[in-house]
Amino acid sequence: MELNFACKYPFTEEGKQAIKENNIQINDEITERGVKRIVDALNRVQRTANPVHISDQLIEIGSYGAARMMLAHLRNRYLSNKFAIAEAKKASSLMARETKENIKRLQNELGVVPGEFEGKVVVPLEVYVKFSPRSVDYRLINRNVKEGHVEVSRREVLRLMEEAVKMKVEDIGLFPNAPEIVKKYSVKLMKLVPKTAPSKMSFKEGENPPCIEKLLETAKKHENLGHQGRWTLAVYLINKGVPYEKILQIFSNFPDYDERVASYQIKHAINRGYTVPSCGMLLSYGLCIAECKIGNPLRWKTWKRKK
């Protein structure tokens, strides 16, 4: 029973505990599975089926640990990000059919504990802003807020929990002096990583306004971007005359990049001849981060480089 929980949610205390109590040691089988776990994350293969045999469960839990060791050793933000997203998605689909009791346990562990206030389901404001996805619907300004509580639906609580899992999994410390086996399989892993080599941005400093710089920065860091952010970036780049291939390359930096979807979106935007959203619009998306007083990001001039 406990092992079952640890197996489904290896990022929890129970997960760590299970490794200790059962004295799970890193070995070829476990590390091999760890590699697969990361490769699956890259290829978006969702594995939600859970092993029932104890020995398999132990390997499954161990493989999570092994995967994290490799990621800590490699210090590759792109991989870590992809891995975190996949683990969070997997956890989220398991949580959707989880017992009340287990959900409670997870909520405590993740720090997303909903409560009740004036007959509504709420989470504390500080928790909400920390774990809400960056999309217009989740912006604080569009929410019901009172005395430090933010109203949320049950479904939204799950979404916040998913984000919390992602952040937890993503938070990988340093791992100096990795054991040989971790090094060996890390090399193996890198050979399996598709070569959509994260591209250089090759923009001059100050060439783009702060909001766009920030979006590009997100791509550079292989962090995810909400729909509005992605769209803004695409339309901006198109209007600046950046060629399609180059844009696609930039987009390939996003951890949840899917070439088919991205190329469709970019082509679509090119064909429709979208104009770049105004600064006011970007403000409402929560993407404006300065007061350049230029009305539209496209009006950014290189002379503004150094204020």
Binding site: L125, E126, V129, K130, S132, R139, L140, I141, V145, L283, G286, I289
Partner: peptide
């Protein structure tokens, strides 16, 4: 997160 609060 602070931005969400300020924008609000």
């Amino acid at each position: 997160e602070r931005r969400e609060i300020a924008d609000y």
